[in-house]
Design a protein around this nucleic acid. Sequence first.
DNA 1: TGTACATCAGTGAACGCGCGTTCACTGATGTAC
DNA 2: TGTACATCAGTGAACGCGCGTTCACTGATGTAC
Lengths: 223, 223
Amino acid sequence: MLETLTLTSGTRHEKDQIMKMQSKSKKRASYHHGDLRSQLIEATRELVEEKGPDNFSVSEACRRAGVSTAAPYKHFKDKTEMLREVAAAGMVRQSEQMMAELAPHPDGTQARIIALGRVYIRFATAEPGVFRLMFTWSGDTDDDQKLYALGDEKFAVVQMEVAKCHGRQVIEDEDRQKAFMLWSFVHGLSFLSIDGKLADNKMPADLETILAEIARRIVPEAA
Amino acid sequence: MLETLTLTSGTRHEKDQIMKMQSKSKKRASYHHGDLRSQLIEATRELVEEKGPDNFSVSEACRRAGVSTAAPYKHFKDKTEMLREVAAAGMVRQSEQMMAELAPHPDGTQARIIALGRVYIRFATAEPGVFRLMFTWSGDTDDDQKLYALGDEKFAVVQMEVAKCHGRQVIEDEDRQKAFMLWSFVHGLSFLSIDGKLADNKMPADLETILAEIARRIVPEAA
DNA sequence: TGTACATCAGTGAACGCGCGTTCACTGATGTAC
DNA sequence: TGTACATCAGTGAACGCGCGTTCACTGATGTAC
């Protein structure tokens, strides 16, 4: 069955086929695909990781999903919408990771601040393509605005954590400023890391040490 | 003389022509150009700013410089080399600004640390395209390595400034770590800023206040 | 259960586009005499 | 000062390429009866 395929890139496509077989138990059950939308999103995500958001192409995603280049337009308005889906999924994934990492630590502790920073940087280095993509949305359109709001929510979480470290249940300007400093720091560290700028002697301590040091300097110990 | 031009984009090109007239006193003195190399670099820089590093095209730079699309290949190996020239010029420009901003402040003061951060962020917001471009070089080739080294030099300056704040003439691990924290912070702040993520209530104080706050928390007052 | 039919997810061919780069060329410039 | 010539910076046409998107189509599916 595999031998009848006409697509080009041998090994890569074989792997896709194997995955498809695993999930659908045969190559293509019929003329209809059944799950093309999510499979195109997954192909888009992979390509964004492999080539970067700017080198993603619809054509290549189609090749990878094994459909014609016209197929995506039954599911997405255009290329931008495909990328936006991937970005949105990334935001959600990052949020989930934050919540999971937060869970074991009691309220109002530095450990929670550190946990948030750890997830931020871990996500960036694990999925640099998607991470970059998440920051390329201008917020001009309504759809962009939704993405933008997801980011805002996450920042509000950081602000709340800082406030709780100060024994407050309401966010004050001081918390906003400190949350902003923390965010800038982990954002910069993430980008320096995925841009390969930390190769040599530039990051003299391990990540946990640096995160703890930053938290200590910006947010007080629990009361 | 201007009316004889055959290029398309009206106003834009008129402006270029005016600039060219100012610098050369007439449109094109002859078949030969005289200063095409630097004029192509300037066109490349402009386009990197206007469209972003990933949307720059050689063709458009040629249109803007008023030459055929084959002309650049008498001066540059390929597209990458054109972009690298712009990136390198950016690094130099940023260094010069740092030195200038450093000059008025006495050695070993927080003011010098703040000055470096101020230039970093100011450069990023003034030239976001070039700033982005400066961080896209992998360092794989020899030419990339030169760019990389320029970045290293600048980081060494920050490390030295931190050491001097501690009354040292030799950089120690503590200085490296603090310099790294400062760098991450301004780098993150720069990217958040040029990616338009600071629109709302996210940056609660002005830049100078935040810079001073960060310097205070990471580097001690002068002895 | 069997048939007619509407729906709609996929096809494959085509489109126009702008791109990076090469090529044989041309014509202005500077130099040797 | 005038002429012959080598140099080389620019031309313009062409190349092959991959792209995003549209189009009329086809054939599998689910539903009404």
